[in-house]
Write a protein that binds this DNA or RNA. Structure first.
Lengths: 247, 247
DNA sequence: AGAATAGTGTCTGTAAGACATTATTCA
DNA sequence: TGAATAATGTCTTACAGACACTATTCT
């Protein structure tokens, strides 16, 4: 299958392309693996599916799979499709991490996988079919997982934690409306350390805007409800976080 | 070709693997493209090769190519092989950027490429066959390039520039021994702005060590020669650079 | 001596962390 | 009134950028 919109530069090139047979060469198996991350019970959790096919039949693994060159426009589209097939996620934040591959990572042969992570707010998590998929907190991942998926998860989580130091990435784990206390808690869970409220607010304030007359009320002072500023774009801070608070 | 070291979990899985034919499914074309970067005449420059095959015959493109699943252990090994095939680079710094793919980027069909960049010191650049390959300064890249290689170069350069803000990545563009002034100049060229000597030295000093009694001499005060500290590892700074100097 | 670059010392501004204090609600 | 959390104000510290000043060599 050759591309349709491309205009060959010469008759010789057109002939070459007409005769080109991509299947004549041995290529790697190519998959996409999304690490779908949310917060559950104050813990980072990832969605795993139970494999219904060989190899690793019955093991837990990432909800990924082969790129379908007929239907996927690009790797991102493939990742979105995988997310849709497992559950009707509402356009979560999706980011490519890296590509890993080699001769040994898949017993079916030389394989390459494009690793993504997706962040989704706890409130936006759709119900899942518990026979097929399950949320695992990071602290209680299954012992034996399919392929190198355990290493892939570690890699994606490292990336998320690293970016939380100098961007507002964890904001994508929050619902659209949130209080700054909730937001701080999410950052603390991702960063695995306590932050001080003053510094956190100063840092995050330029990226959020209060929703007028909207407060979250409880048996204490009501909390202003915020949303991300529509123009806050990449959510990058000038300064990385420095330390942790002592108490 | 299935992996040899894997031990199937069951007889059924062993049977499945024995009968698995990876070539039965349509897979993308899979390539690796390294953006080889050095400094020439006070400018960032990339190595391009003239394509000797269709498509884009005669155009300049990145010195990449197909993954050879027989000989390449993983994508990094493939990138190293590509670098070796074009010139005997001495183990340059190599980093994966991202993977791009889709239906339209290669007229031969749905293709995926794993993008890398390599950094190499001007002094370590081996001589190249000028009929096959050529260094292009970033400011004077060829107008029409093969595939989406122009966009790939832009992407790799953006990554290098971004990391120069919070890591000592540009150090890999220096020879093993260098003066701090030379180092500062390299950072300035990568960052495209002037830096102040005081702040730069404070920042970089923990990552380098002076070589005893080794000075670079000229018609002015001799400059201490430094090398990277062997333990400086990932070369990450606590603080990102903030601004530029005025004059 | 003067040119040229290497290298240092110090001031200032900015922003982070610490922490005490005030604010507001409900039980 | 007290518990609980929200939100603010201020002090201290760390470090980047500015910039003047000293150091050392060669011509």
């Amino acid at each position: 299958m050759t591309s349709s919109t491309y205009r060959p530069a010469s008759a010789a090139e057109a002939r070459f392309l007409a005769e080109y047979d991509a299947s004549a060469y041995a290529t790697p198996l190519v998959t996409v693996d999304p690490v779908i991350v949310t917060l559950r019970d104050e813990q980072l959790a990832v969605l795993l599916v139970k494999r219904e096919e060989h190899p690793f039949l019955g093991s837990w693994g990432l909800p990924g799979g082969f790129i379908d060159i007929r239907n996927d426009a690009d790797p991102e589209a493939c990742a979105v499709r995988k997310l849709k097939e497992k559950a009707a996620f509402v356009s979560p934040y999706l980011e490519q991490v890296k590509t890993v591959g080699g001769r040994e990572r898949d017993p079916r042969g030389w394989s390459l996988t494009v690793l993504f992570f997706a962040l989704i707010a706890e409130d936006d998590v759709p119900p899942i079919d518990k026979r097929l998929a399950k949320w695992f907190p990071l602290s209680a991942l299954p012992d034996a997982m399919a392929f190198d998926h355990r290493a892939l998860i570690d890699c994606a989580i490292r990336r998320i934690r690293a970016k939380a130091e100098y961007t507002a990435l964890p904001a994508h784990l929050l619902p659209q409306r949130f209080t700054l206390s909730k937001m701080q808690r999410v950052f603390e869970l991702v960063l695995q350390r306590r932050l001080t409220a003053g510094a956190f607010r100063r840092r995050i304030e330029p990226l959020v805007e209060p929703i007028a007359d909207c407060f979250e009320t409880a048996s204490h002072r009501p909390a202003q409800v915020y949303r991300l500023r529509p123009d806050s774009g990449s959510l990058i801070f000038e300064q990385p976080l420095k330390g942790a608070r002592r108490k």
